[in-house]
């Protein structure tokens, strides 16, 4: 196998997949860091976002033009889910919310299956040939995916570092009691967090859908690699989630060298176990919850 073959058939697909995991893992790490629970409905919220985009594409929109709109709609849905379910459990032990999120996951999936059915579908049919960039083969959708992920990550970082409410989110993640003493409104931060998490879910779901296919179990299967990425990078760390996503994505693609291809999904699990054994706070020293 030549170096170019390695790049084109293993590394590039791994990076594209990893970039999608990264967007999902950022959402998980934000919920973990700010709201302090493991959000098991994250995968199915991703599925829902992908189908919201599908509905928009069905009206004749260009898929990439539908993405921002799908992000806004899913953000509103995420806020609604929080208000309808998690908000009532805020004063109870966090494990109650964790289990409730598992229930929400099943509900979201059922809604998707009732409305759109269980058959796989796509945003755009037809075979797209990749373009050749100095020997590296990239389809336009892969290029757009990488560009969109970069835009999302940079935009989110700028928001968290520079803006008043971004700082309030970091403060809430850092020291919730002190943030409240400083007058930060917990409810507003919670709502803002869900808006961002919902938007990220839609982005991850859409990008997975456009690079593979759209089906009702897609998000559920994303859950393990996304959690592995978030924990690998360090809980509460946005940059960690990006790094973790890329590591998990590339590792899954490379795993076929040593394992049969059907064990690809187990790679994330193996990585998760390894990091918990060796460096439980993650690569970038995340929180201990």
């Amino acid at each position: 196998m030549t170096l170019l073959d390695f790049l084109n058939f293993y590394l590039v697909p791994g990076i594209v997949l990893g970039a999608i995991y990264a967007v999902g893992a950022i959402g998980i790490t934000l919920v973990f860091g700010i709201l302090r629970f493991a959000h098991f409905a994250h995968g199915d919220m991703t599925t829902l976002g992908a189908f919201v985009a599908l509905a928009l594409v069905g009206t004749g929109m260009n898929p990439w033009a539908a993405l921002p709109l799908a992000m806004i709609i899913t953000a509103a849905i995420a806020i609604g889910v929080d208000r309808t379910f998690y908000d009532y459990l805020a004063k109870r032990p966090k494990i109650v919310t964790v289990m409730a999120s598992l229930g929400v996951a099943l509900m979201l999936r059922s809604v998707v299956q009732v409305v759109w059915g269980v058959d796989p579908t796509t945003y755009a049919s037809g075979i797209v040939r990749p373009n050749d960039y100095f020997g590296i083969l990239l389809r336009p959708r892969e290029l757009y995916t990488l560009g969109a992920v970069a835009l999302i990550v940079v935009g989110l970082e700028l928001f968290l570092r520079r803006s008043k409410w971004g700082k309030a989110m970091r403060a809430m993640s850092d020291n919730p009691d002190l943030a409240r003493l400083s007058g930060v409104d917990n409810r507003k931060v919670t709502m803002l967090t869900w808006a961002i998490v919902g938007a990220l879910c839609a982005a991850a779901g859409f990008m997975l859908g456009i690079n593979t296919e759209v089906h009702s179990m897609m998000g559920w299967h994303l859950l393990l690699p996304m959690f592995a990425a978030a924990i690998l990078g360090g809980v509460g760390r946005v940059q960690g989630a990006v790094l973790g996503g890329l590591v998990v994505g590339v590792a899954e693609e490379l795993s076929v060298f040593i394992l049969p291809a059907q064990y690809k999904a187990a790679t994330a699990f193996a990585l998760l176990l390894l990091i918990l054994l060796v460096r439980p706070r993650g690569l970038l020293n995340g929180k201990v919850l």
Binding site: K167, R170, A171, D174, N175, L178, A179, L181, S182, G183
Partner: peptide
């Protein structure tokens, strides 16, 4: 408060900014 009275992962200046949040 006696303990945990700063935002550890934020800069000194950002801590003051949070103080002036309102």
């Amino acid at each position: 408060p006696q303990v945990d009275n700063v935002f550890r992962e934020m800069t000194v200046h950002e801590n003051l900014e949070m103080g002036g949040f309102l």
